[in-house]
Design a binder for these strands. Structure first.
Lengths: 368, 368
DNA sequence: CTGAAAGCGCTAACAC
DNA sequence: GTGTTAGCGCTTTCAG
């Protein structure tokens, strides 16, 4: 169909080796021959076939990006960062969505390993690392993102989740909250568990006793966030909720709405990870922002470095990104202890617009 | 590194052709040989190298998915549909985000054409189709999704945008609105233009004069949605806004919030395309829902069919998907004509909870 | 500095 | 039924 290197060689009256050399600059070619070749290339509209190249070099010039939730804008930003890196290098990225399902992750890992992609960036569904075992056994270039795995030496990029959660919790404490509910995500995911740890440390350091009944071990989706919030609200005296995940934060809002809970008047809400829409909500959301784009971007850096280095020594690197608290309307001082009455769907929205005391504005890299 | 077909052949004491035949089932192989081969395969952990296969067959077993905005959950759902189709067929999907930039689209098209992917699903940035010209010239299997292009015969899958917009507008009219603002998206995109057409037809059929000052030719992002809303609100007597795009709807909400506009009390809002979070907003959003997942899924169907058919006759197919109006809280009857006072940041949220008259609940396919 | 030729791993004629 | 062999398009020794 399209012209091959052979066609070009014939047309230019040179050997295919010479064509290859001018295309790749792999060896010096005299000016006159090079010129002839270039001309032939233009005339024939020759495009090197990457399939041949791939086979010969044993590389596919493709990487795999395996993420747990494409609906979560956080991961979308991560993907953008990765894609930008790939684009510069003329690499393709095959993106897969596991929906937090380890089985699906295992499937994708196997499938892409067969496919002989040159490297993997994955946000694993489980910190045990079982799903990534095949990759490690195979020695494929790998960097984990957002979540690390235990006891395995791999490149990793993630947020300071413990610190960010600490800051979030402290923010609530400093506003006067003592009974702070936690929407914890799926257990077994490092980022989530670190956030839980940060929450607990903040409580401890402020002399607030831990109360397991205030921790809702949820999942990661909107629906589950809503139902977990539902049960948290049954706990007496709860005045604030810290949601460890984007989607659950949405669920909490939905629950508030259905139950006629006013936020922050009745209960404050702080979320983990910012998003474009966080400021469009009523109330706008106080959040701990992550550097999502950079996370993907850095992961790309590490991966392509590993790919370039080849299967040599693997001096593993870890990059930890700082978070920043963005204070908006959803957090405020707790209201005076009041008789807890069960309001059902009397949907009254907040009226007062309590501005939180300190408002840092986070800087986020533009998406492109 | 890993075992090749040759290794297997040697180990099983057969020819490589036989190995190939048992792997692919392309020819009959006697039971005993087949068994030997299968055993050798297991012992060596042989995985056929797709690169060799690809080169030989002139197919990469990869498709390209080029979408304009990964931040928009609509396209995320489309992508899920496509990916599901690809997964079943052991195809890889290279997903690209043009951010509505024709240049980037052109780059990706060229880049993936070089890459020799087997087919393209794209949601083009411009209905003129210039960006897709190389694909068409090359005869690559192609299906356009969400948006069609003019004067070119290609497979296409899209929503009944005109009908959906008509329904949206009529919904507002039936509530009593007469001066209805339109947040139109980027011009030159078929879906958007069809929505504008639907809006105009609805007005015309109800004897409402068209007023260009009520049409804000915006873009597709949150920010632009907010600023366009800002200018729409300057128009006298406006009581409702129809937003033709997901992200702009968010922008409108943001603007309402900043300006202290109560929705739907001061102005009603209806959006195009539903999303998981639409019901978490205050007020929850009335929208025209699209079958986003199916859109991707159907596009996958068409594309793989075209790929299978080869470069033969191209009996182009068009699939039009129905939309459904989901009535929630953001639309209501217009309030009595009131003196228009400019309220700045007096952020008062709505208190009453007007339920819209008719509430259909749309059925949407689960994401997986 | 350039060309000839081997071969990456696989499939598909073509033989027997 | 099975084996032999010729490439797919490219890169890269190895000779000159």
């Amino acid at each position: 169909m399209s012209a091959t290197i052979k066609d070009v060689a014939e047309r230019a009256g040179v050997s295919i080796a010479t064509v290859s050399n001018v295309v790749n600059g792999s060896r010096f070619v005299s000016d006159d021959l090079a010129e002839k070749v270039r001309q032939a290339i233009v005339e024939l509209g020759y495009q090197p076939n990457p399939l041949g190249r791939a086979l010969r070099k044993g590389k596919s010039f493709t990487i795999a990006l395996i993420l747990p939730d494409h609906s979560n804008p956080f991961f979308v930003q991560v993907a953008r960062g990765v894609e930008e890196q790939a684009r510069r290098r003329e690499y393709g990225v095959i993106t897969c969505n596991t929906d937090e399902d380890p089985e699906l992750e295992t499937f994708y890992v196997a499938s892409l390993l067969k496919r002989k992609v040159d490297g993997f960036i994955v946000s694993p569904t489980f910190r045990g690392g079982e799903t990534l075992q095949p990759l490690i056994a195979h020695g494929a270039p790998l960097v984990v993102v957002d979540r690390y795995i235990d006891g395995m030496k791999v490149d990793e990029v993630f947020s300071d989740n413990e610190g960010g959660a600490y800051e979030a919790t402290e923010h609530l404490v400093s506003l006067g909250h003592r009974r702070i509910g936690l929407l914890a995500g799926i257990p077994g995911i490092s980022s989530i568990e670190d956030r839980v740890a940060g929450y607990k440390r903040a409580l401890a350091e402020h002399g607030i006793p831990e109360d397991e009944s205030l921790i809702a071990q949820g999942c990661s989706q909107i629906k589950e966030g809503a139902s977990s919030t539902e049960s948290l609200l049954k706990q007496r005296g709860i005045t604030a909720i810290f949601s460890t995940n984007n989607m659950m934060t949405l669920g909490a809002l939905q629950c508030f709405k259905n139950r006629g809970i006013r936020c922050p008047d009745d209960v404050s809400l702080i979320g983990f990870d910012d998003s474009e829409w966080a400021s469009a909500f009523t109330p706008s959301l106080t959040v701990v922002a992550q550097q999502s784009y950079e996370m993907g971007y850095s992961a790309g850096d590490l991966l392509f470095e590993a790919i370039a280095r080849g299967k040599g020594e693997h001096k593993t690197r870890a990059i930890k990104l700082q978070t920043v608290l963005i204070s908006r309307e959803s957090t405020g001082r707790p209201s005076e202890p009041r008789p807890r009455k069960e309001v059902h769907r009397s949907a009254t929205s907040g009226e007062k617009n309590k501005q939180s005391p300190s408002t840092k504005s986070g800087t986020r890299r533009p998406s492109r």
